[in-house]
Design a protein around this nucleic acid. Sequence first.
DNA 1: CAGCCGTGGCA
DNA 2: TTGCCAAGGCT
Length: 337
Amino acid sequence: MTATVSDLLLDWYDAHARDLPWRARPGHVLPSDGSWPYRVWLSEVMLQQTTVAAVKPYFSAFTQRWPTVEALAAAPEEDVMAAWAGLGYYSRARNLVKCARAVAELGGFPANEEELRELPGLGAYTAAAVAAIAFDERAVVVDANVERVVARLFAVEEPLPGARKAIRDHADRITPTQRAGDFAQAMMDLGSGICTSRDPKCLLCPLAGHCAGRLTGDPARLPIKAPKKTKPLRLGRAFWVERDDSVWLVRREGTGMLGGMRALPDDGWSARGNGAGGPAGETLGRVRHGFTHFDLELSVEQVAEPLGEGEWWPLEEIDRAGLPTLFAKVARLALAR
DNA sequence: CAGCCGTGGCA
DNA sequence: TTGCCAAGGCT
């Protein structure tokens, strides 16, 4: 009887699993206060499109400040947004609060994939991951790592995103009934450290003997992706208003770019695509910042009077304002002059 | 379905 | 320096 892909992968995982703050250690007793699903959920949301290294300090800060989902549910949204500042994709933080409150209302996390999927911020991936990792339910967990591993393992030549369905079907076939959570995390570890996007380490791969992509001679070319569009450059202006060792900060409205985050006043670059309005001021310098689908060059101008609704924020405490990175750069520029 | 939505590290 | 990319979700 030959070993299956999942057997090989789980054996490899037992020997080589990464030790991460949100994972249960082998032989470790899970917390009895109900915080285990909370920690799994929180880590999975933070890890959406975000590296492990970036998440670690945020996960530590969040779990110390809000040890349970009930504690997070009771927090003002503004505090959570500020704590999330710098991690990016701020709709995650807005949905985090909504989700925590819904879960607190329910009396705890639902223990199955279907109901998890209905919570704000939990899509197909995260619902499956939480079901498998937190509740040991068999769920087919497909993220970018799994897509890459599976596309190579089965030599899927169809380009993404069209290949998604075929890849999920393959993933379904190799997902075991037992230890589905460990299997999912093993696929992530494999994709992160062995079956990497560039320069995969096939000689170290426990699945090398089963890999059809390796037989093609160049597994690194898989999965095939559509070419990316070039990012446009947008121009805008940000306003620095300083008075009595304080600076004027606003809170961005809505669910669009940096929505809900504390910020410096600006000319509406994010809404209109180019800067036009606002008072004339003394130029302090320029800030470049890259977003997902455009680059931004912001002219930073000092003006005398506050703009819009906002608050005076002491310059000494600017690091605690929860400014997203774009505006943290602006503040750094203004304070360094 | 394709566009929108951050950030930092790396080659 | 520039482009690519990393545990996606929402509309």
